[in-house]
Write a protein that binds this DNA or RNA. Structure first.
Lengths: 347, 347
DNA sequence: GATATCCTTTGCAGCGCTGCAAACAGGATG
DNA sequence: CATCCTGTTTGCAGCGCTGCAAAGGATATC
């Protein structure tokens, strides 16, 4: 397939009349090369159309120049939006991004956190776990630089980047309560083992009620295994079916909110008049849906940039830096699903 | 960072009392290894916790075991859904997937189609071009196995996988005409250079009118640079603002449709009573939006599987196979945005 | 019993690059 | 003029694996 032999460092060296090591120095932009030499080498490089062989470089360096990003589901807008930012940030640093989806499979997650089945494919991992257990984290390869997104507080051996879930959730629910809603449901709670983030959001839900001196309706806290549209739609149907429906719903993701709204509308209810809905994540869908979705907007750009920065720092340092808890800011964005629609635009 | 030396083939060989080449044979599952030897080696592997160093393997093999998938935008649901399927298909074959987004940048596309800036990072590319010119395709590295998705008919040196855009579009528009709509708009047309797919869809739009013996309203064909929500929303606003609005819209993507619907609803119009809307791609959003979106559903699973299969075949063959035109099937999925909403469910 | 045949195992070279340390050159310094 | 220093260039070994071809063993064939 490859035509003949490819141009190597040695070929360039020969043409330029220098050693191959010098060519390497030029190609990698190392200091201490005289302008004269640099020019000579550069000309030879251009003339031969030399391009470094990354495979050989990687082997010699002992690094792959790649990082892995592991997410549960690639087609979840929140993840794909975040991924986009991560790829950009990594590229700037000369790193390639290998993407893996676990489908929420715990065994798969466990494997990936240990370099997958082979060494050195990637130099570090940015991990967004779904069902990663404390134990899996504990007996992972301690030499693999790791940054975790979302849930799971750091144990000191890795960095954790996310927003303050409790506070963000509290803001969301306070918003609903401040609108005068008194039967607020929560969709997305999960048992501790499978969803630390969910737990934090439920905590925020409770705190909001406490702060406003209002009772939590325990029966309105609905557990759901995933944060997707289907779960949101089902959970909402469940809430409506059993009578005495809520007048507001705090959804643990925008997808859940979209699913819930879908059910409400198709049952002939009005959002937000009958039921106000608030989501979480600020995905693009929510900005164009009918109604548009009020949401908690985490600063994805900052999360991505911080995660990449910390990971590369980890990769580059001899002695592992301390595991940090890093908080990105978030905002409450009020849209139609809680505030109602403005009168049809005149223009 | 790495603790001491890692376990190598040689270490295993020593422990098992065989040559390192034999260990390699076992690890790679080559034939012609006696059961006895295999067991001995396997035990040594397990005992030492040996894991192959992919970097070294890649260099020795001259292949990276990775393929690149290049899409314009990662956060476009159509692409992320497709990507998900591609990753799965590649993984089954032992290939890793490197993801790249071009942001529709032509120079970036041009570079990636030529192995990026370095050799051997990936063994082949699945490319979903946005603005890739005929010339860029022509002077690409002919030795880099390539499969193109979507637009761009094959010139014989690569495979092209997609659905029949003309036919699919015709079906979509025939559906609108058959509902009795007579002023059908099209949103998403593009000049030939930048959007071959768009051109094909416009062709289908015309053919549908021809087949039904109806005139095309040329002024209702709206060009838009991208297939996203914002463009759909704007284009729809444009159509409404200038008076004599259409009674149906054929959108070149579901995102455009969602954007268009957003504008319609916010202007107080009813979908589909006042304006019927049909999309393209069958992304998940359209199944939960209000109203749900009638769409053309390409068989993404088949597109992904076919693309990967053809690419690996190309990578594996000494003499390049002929460039094929491969067609995946599509279906028209009728939902609320053209058929209207069923009465609110009793249950 | 000698030869051919097949299966299994081995040794070696080398993939193309970089780390390391030594060599070298050209000034500056004493 | 010898010595030291700094900046630049070089040589070599080796990253850990696989391709190749040959060697070794066991069995079949005449």
């Amino acid at each position: 397939m490859r035509r003949g032999r490819e141009v190597t460092l040695r070929d360039v060296a020969e043409l330029a009349g220098v050693s191959s090591r010098t060519v390497s120095n030029v190609v990698n932009g190392y200091a201490n090369v005289t302008e004269h030499t640099r020019r000579r080498v550069q000309e030879a490089v251009d003339q031969l159309g030399y391009r470094p062989n990354v495979l050989a470089r990687n082997l010699a360096r002992g690094r792959s120049g790649q990082i892995a990003v592991v997410v549960p589901y690639l087609d979840t807008p929140y993840f794909s939006e975040l991924l986009q930012d991560i790829i950009r940030a990594a590229r700037v640093q000369g790193y390639n991004v290998l993407i893996d989806q676990t489908d929420g499979d715990r065994e798969h997650e466990r494997m990936l956190i240990n370099h997958g089945s082979s060494r050195l494919l990637f130099d570090g991992v940015i991990f967004s776990p779904l069902g990663l257990s404390q134990e899996a984290l504990a007996d992972r390869d301690p030499d693999l630089p790791l940054v975790i997104l979302g849930e799971r507080v750091s144990d000191g051996t890795f960095d954790h980047v996310g927003i303050d879930d409790v506070e963000a959730s509290r803001h969301a629910v306070e918003h609903l309560l401040d609108l005068g809603r008194r039967r607020v449901a929560a969709i997305g709670d999960q048992p501790y083992e499978t969803g630390e983030a969910a737990q934090l959001r439920t905590r925020g839900f409770r705190e909001a009620h406490e702060r406003r001196g209002l009772p939590v309706h325990e029966d309105l806290i609905i557990r759901r295994p995933r944060f997707n549209r289907a779960d949101g739609a089902e959970a909402m149907a469940h809430l409506l079916d059993r009578g005495d429906p809520p007048d507001a719903v705090f959804c643990y993701s925008d997808l859940v909110a979209l699913g819930a709204i879908h059910t409400l509308i198709s049952r002939g209810m009005r959002v937000p008049e009958d039921v106000a809905v608030i989501g979480y994540d600020d995905i693009e869908d929510g900005r164009y849906s009918n109604p548009t979705v009020t949401t908690i907007s985490p600063d994805k750009g900052m999360i991505a940039a911080t995660a990449v920065e910390r990971l590369l720092l980890r990769i580059g340092s001899k002695t592992p830096p301390p595991g940090l808890e890093l908080r990105a800011p978030h905002r409450l964005i009020v849209r139609e699903s809680t505030a109602g629609r403005a009168a049809p635009a005149a223009h």
